[in-house]
Design a protein around this nucleic acid. Structure first.
Length: 142
DNA sequence: AAGTCACGCAACCGCTTTGAT
DNA sequence: AATCAAAGCGGTTGCGTGACT
């Protein structure tokens, strides 16, 4: 049910985005706004499926995106939110202005890998432990 | 200096959910 | 109320880069 047919069309570009594609997408979203992703490839001429366009915008082109260097506070919040919400990356990202679900997911997977390697009580483990004991963890419902 | 390995990030794939008809 | 298409989400993969031997 409901599999998006656009992603099965042949002749679509794959892999890394070019500067031209970025500009087309960025200009389009700025002038028309997001939401109707199905129209984006047709109206911009970008040879990508709508999913790729959406992902590119959300994870890379959005003007309010912060990139790199997740702060200690942000890391702390991610860990606490993950404890509460599980792998609901989009929800977690919603609590972290300027961060994307993909970025947080990648970051978490990196942390997990490190934690598995260390397998010892790290600062993260301590934070998680602390989070368990303090339910009012300073995040806000919207 | 060259080759190999490991890590991190960007992008893709497929399933689920939501909205329109 | 049922069906279908569009959109959203999370897991996984592939590529590029840097560190190490």
């Amino acid at each position: 049910m409901g599999r998006s047919p656009c992603c099965h069309k042949e002749g679509l570009n794959k892999g890394a985005w070019t500067a031209d594609e970025d500009k087309l997408l960025s200009d389009y979203i700025k002038s028309r706004g997001g939401g109707k992703w199905g129209k984006v490839p047709k109206e911009t001429g970008i040879k990508r499926c709508w999913k790729s366009c959406r992902l590119r915008w959300l994870n890379y082109l959005r003007p309010d995106i912060k990139r790199g260097n997740i702060t200690h506070d942000e890391e702390d919040l991610i860990i606490r939110l993950h404890k509460l919400l599980g792998n609901r990356w989009s929800l977690i990202a919603g609590r972290l202005p300027g961060r994307t679900d993909n970025e947080i997911k990648n970051y978490w997977n990196t942390i997990l890998a490190k934690r598995q390697q260390n397998n010892e009580k790290s600062s993260i483990a301590r934070v998680v432990d602390e989070a368990c004991r303090n339910p009012d963890m300073g995040y806000q419902h919207q």
